[in-house]
Amino acid sequence: MSHVKVELKPEQVTKIKEICKSFNNNPGELINVLHQTQGAFGYLPAEVQEVVAAELGIPVAKVYGVVTFYSFFTMLPKGKHPISVCTGTACYVRGAEKVLDEFKRILEVKVGESTPDGKFSLNCLRCVGACGLAPVVLVGDKVYGRVSPDGVKDILNEYAD
């Protein structure tokens, strides 16, 4: 868990409250609330979770429990261009590991980390279902198919601005 304290601006707090309200502050809708909140903020730091918990009338521990249970939710901000390497079985047998190693080597980050300038973050995901294009890499929403370790540099160069 990150120890950097996030100061929420009043309008951000209002935004979270609005999201909760759109689900009638119903604790049963916690996962939907978190989906929308993460959509608005990019990630779910502890301070955001506290507001959600207060609005839905449940303990923060419960919100934290849900956030940490599901891999879709993150408590760390993602990079400007989030990179996800598919490590599903089809991509694995077609060499996804080598592609991942190449990203790690060039970006000098581990899986789950962001580059110091916040430009790229590196993650793994399990199967986007484009197995015909294995191995697959996603940068943001863009899908790159049949990626080879040699092609990693070209992908990153597309985002060199």
């Binding site: 916690l30 996962i31 939907n32 989906h35 849900v66 891999s71 879709f72």
Partner: peptide, 21 residues
């Protein structure tokens, strides 16, 4: 209802708990 990335939620009792938030 949306999942949030947990393989175990394919199991029906886990899925139901997930739908309950």
């Amino acid at each position: 209802r949306y999942g949030a990335g947990a393989f175990v939620c394919g199991e029906e009792t886990a899925l139901i708990h997930s739908m309950e938030g």
